[in-house]
């Protein structure tokens, strides 16, 4: 039965010892430890959160990067295309210009040739007239007085020639 009855002496010591242990541990032991554990848990939670955020940011940045690269490539293509277009433009324009120029030169040349021809014809005509006159002189010197009808004929023929030339 003594097993089931609390003993006053032991109880006295138990209360003292437990009180001392409790005071020491409650003041210098457990609060320190639990506070530190709490602190570390918060830190770990926080770190995990930050890591997750960083991860998200990184993946966002990777996406952004890919997007930027794609954009740059597109830009590059566009610029190249534009450059090719511009080149083609310039070339075709130059060609056109050259053709125009050539045409103009040809025209000028033709005009000048025409003018030259005209002047040459005129020259020829005057020469012919002169020649005719000289021929006529010679004819006249020999035969002027004799045959006035021949002179008329020469004149008439010269006129015909010049008029037919002008008609062209």
């Amino acid at each position: 039965m003594s097993l089931l009855l609390p003993d006053s002496g032991l109880l006295f010591w138990m209360v003292i010892i437990f009180a001392i242990v409790f005071v020491i541990l409650a003041r210098y032991g457990f609060p320190v430890i639990t506070k530190m554990l709490e602190k570390r848990r918060d830190y770990i939670d926080n770190s995990l959160r930050l890591a997750r955020e960083a991860d998200e940011k990184l993946s966002r940045m990777t996406q952004e990067q890919a997007r930027m690269i794609a954009q740059a490539r597109e830009e590059q293509n566009r610029i190249l295309r534009e450059a090719a277009q511009a080149r083609d433009n310039i070339v075709s324009k130059a060609k056109e210009q050259a053709q125009d120029e050539a045409r103009k030169i040809l025209e000028e040349a033709r005009v000048r040739i025409e003018a030259e021809k005209e002047s040459a014809l005129r020259e020829i005509r005057s020469q012919v007239a002169l020649l005719s006159v000289k021929v006529a002189e010679k004819v006249i010197r020999q035969n002027l007085s004799t045959d006035k009808a021949q002179m008329d004929l020469v004149n008439k023929m010269l006129d015909e020639v010049s008029s037919s030339k002008r008609g062209n």
């Binding site: 006053s8 002496g9 032991l10 006295f12 010591w13 242990v21 020491i24 457990f30």
Partner: peptide, 25 residues
Amino acid sequence: ISVTKNVLALMISSVILVTLILCCS
């Protein structure tokens, strides 16, 4: 209020306990 076997054992284990926990803290 004699220091009996149980009291001494209680003291010894309390000292061990306090030492352990204080080492930890």
